[in-house]
């Protein structure tokens, strides 16, 4: 976890998203503005959490960054280069540096392939091993890394539990030694007790290999735990962006407040006295132009020029309380 006020200037930007828009069926009647003008940066070595309700555009954001989709407009820079301009011959290298971990432990592994072939898929594509023996050795190494045993290598995915499958997916992503990993709800399909295993694993390898994460989730307590900074997404736009503690302890945007008030906690007394805050989305749909404004250093909120003062006052109040 990080200190309250990140100093972006000192840190290297690994991913930079600028005014990204991603529309599906653009121009047709069933047009969906899955992402509608979002901008943010992810610094090297950090975990950037992205939360929001279903359909808010989280997965689309992740998939645009990894070039599964071609953006409608806007730019995505990875390590200083615009990913839409990567030449065919450099594409393979890009595919090595950025990897993805998927949500559904049942859909993310090919049911007809053995675990070792699943994990070695990247090794084969990028010719990272010279022969079968080396391949097996590397697969075993990766199995060790994610805490699975070597004799799992010759088994098929359906023989594993959800948590084990998720670890196989992680091993597959790690095989190509990426620098940046997009984890799209990697734990939401898992049991509570298994979630912790996977989260710990992700943190351990992050430390070990100096990885940068984009961690997508709708479970806010887990995101808070794993992320350094968090962006809150709604209807394809970012509502609020700040350090994890700021977002949780000092939320400014009404949507964030509403979202936080809905998080169930394993505490009956708190639950009995919980007051959910409603959210009136007129603040998004009144037609006024809004963009992310820095309210206090490092804390951004989607606002008009006029609203900034109000948010600043609210932020100040929080800090007086502390």
């Amino acid at each position: 976890m990080m200190q309250n006020n990140p100093q972006p200037q000192e840190r290297k930007k690994l991913v930079e998203v600028k005014h990204l828009k991603q529309y599906f069926n653009a121009g047709r009647r069933n047009e969906v503005k899955a992402i509608d003008d979002i901008s943010f940066e992810i610094y090297e070595g950090e975990t950037f959490g992205l939360v929001g309700e279903s359909g808010s555009g989280k997965s689309t954001t992740g998939r645009s960054i990894i070039r599964l989709y071609t953006p409608t407009s806007g730019e995505i820079e990875f390590n200083g280069t615009d990913i839409s301009k990567i030449k065919h011959k450099d594409m393979l290298q890009f595919r090595r540096e950025m990897q993805m971990i998927f949500q559904d432990p049942y859909a993310s592994l090919n049911p007809r392939m053995k675990v070792k072939d699943i994990i070695a898929e990247g090794l084969d594509i990028h010719h990272l091993v010279k022969n079968e023996a080396e391949r097996d050795a590397r697969v075993n190494e990766l199995l060790d890394l994610v805490g699975l045993s070597h004799d799992h290598a010759t088994r098929y995915p359906h023989e594993f539990s959800g948590g084990q499958r998720q670890r196989i997916g992680i091993a597959r992503a790690l095989a190509v030694e990426p620098r940046f990993i997009i984890a799209d709800e990697p734990i939401s399909a898992l049991d509570v007790s298994i979630q912790a295993q996977v989260v710990n694993l992700l943190r351990d390898i992050q430390k070990e290999q100096n990885l940068t994460y984009l961690f997508i989730a709708h479970d806010l307590s887990m995101v808070k735990y794993i992320s350094d900074r968090i962006a809150v997404m709604h209807n394809g736009r970012l509502m609020e962006l700040s350090s994890a503690d700021e977002v949780y302890n000092h939320p400014l945007h009404p949507y964030t407040k509403s979202l936080l008030s809905a998080v169930p906690l394993p505490d009956p007394f708190y639950e009995r006295n919980r007051h959910r805050k409603g959210y009136d989305d007129r603040i998004e749909t009144d037609g006024q132009l809004r963009s992310l404004k820095e309210i206090v250093p490092g804390h951004f909120v989607l606002a008009t020029e006029e609203e900034v003062a109000g948010y600043q006052a609210a932020a100040e109040e929080y800090h007086l309380d502390d």
Binding site: I66, L92, R95, M100, F102, S108, G169, A173, V176
Partner: peptide, 13 residues
């Protein structure tokens, strides 16, 4: 749209 196909694409297959 299965995730294992997406995974293969992100690996550069």
């Amino acid at each position: 749209t299965q995730e294992y196909i997406l995974a293969a694409r992100t690996l550069g297959e």
